[in-house]
């Protein structure tokens, strides 16, 4: 019932392990796939190793998670063996690429493609680092970035958007016009801050961090809804999905696939399987035969 095909890849279900959740190593990406994620995404990878911020980097508050990991990663050279190991198991894999310039990002993408990644996701939208330029919000920069990466690889390219912009539909259209094959929406919201009242200090080392989980969900659903009206390319809807009900809501808004991140905190390592089973139950209840029938149905 959940089987599908998107961007030329056959998938056991529409669920995608989101970037930065568990994705440090092949072993956990493979475990996520075995636990029910149809597709898995690597942690954001750059040309050179990045140490990221000091702890606390990830915390949970009453309505979601707050993170400022700071895009720590071992660099693409060290990460290539992990990509190869994931592909040895034939697990559909998105490589999330970051960098200071479009050229750097394209280089990471090319190397990831060479190691066997099925898709590239470019991530100009992390709120937890100081980006050199506002690639996530300036249409001209986003267009340049997208076309540079598109020119560099043959595999499909997804552009991951931030919810922290004025007109997300128009930005998605910009990415589509520049050649993007799909949109991932959204990255974390905010940034937000939590202050400890005893020490009077912001808790995160970076002081502020991106909000994910339940608090993000209504924002993510609205973003996906707007993007669906603006573009024809498929959307991976991400943000606060922790149940089959939420997954169905995201698809109704216009998502072809549904990203899952923070739900690993709320539902455990088997979150994908649990959400999948709940989705199947709801599909039966509401008379859907496949997920295609759900995608965008809120717009009819």
């Amino acid at each position: 019932m959940l089987k599908m095909r998107s961007l030329g890849i056959d998938l056991k279900n529409p669920f995608v392990l989101s970037a930065g959740i568990l994705g440090v190593s092949a072993s956990s990406l493979i475990r996520a796939h075995e636990s029910g994620a149809g597709t898995v995404t690597t942690k954001s990878i750059s040309l050179e190793a990045k140490r990221g911020h000091a702890n606390p980097t990830v915390i949970a508050f009453e309505a979601g998670l707050l993170n400022a990991v700071g895009l720590s990663n071992p660099g693409i050279d060290a990460f290539l063996p992990e990509i190869k190991k994931v592909k040895e198991k034939h697990v559909p894999l998105i490589a999330n690429a970051i960098g200071d310039t479009p050229k750097d990002i394209a280089k990471v993408a090319t190397m990831a493609e060479g190691a066997g990644a099925d898709l590239i996701e470019i991530n100009p939208s992390c709120p937890n680092v100081v980006h050199k330029k506002p690639y996530a919000s300036d249409p001209k920069l986003l267009s340049e970035l997208t076309s540079t990466v598109k020119d560099a690889v043959k595999i499909p390219v997804l552009v991951k958007l931030s919810p922290n912009v004025d007109k997300i539909g128009a930005l998605a259209k910009t990415a589509e016009d520049a050649g993007a094959d799909g949109i991932t929406a959204v990255n974390t919201l905010g940034p937000g801050m939590i202050i400890d009242i005893a020490s009077r200090k912001p808790v995160l080392d970076f002081k502020m961090g991106g909000i994910s989980g339940p608090a993000l969900r209504p924002v993510a659903v609205r973003c996906v809804y707007e993007i669906y009206e603006a573009v024809k390319i498929p959307i991976i809807g991400v943000g606060g999905v922790t149940s089959g009900r939420d997954a169905m809501e995201m698809m109704l808004a216009g998502a072809t696939q549904v990203g899952i991140g923070s739900a690993v905190y709320y539902r455990g390592a088997n979150a994908f399987k649990k959400i999948g089973d709940e989705t199947i139950e709801l599909m039966k209840e509401h008379g859907y035969k496949n997920t295609k029938e759900i995608t965008g149905a809120a717009h009819e």
Binding site: G23, N55, V58, N67, V264
Partner: peptide, 9 residues
């Protein structure tokens, strides 16, 4: 250890 609760990997 970063998150301590099973999320970051």
């Amino acid at each position: 250890i970063k998150c301590g609760f099973g999320v970051c990997g």
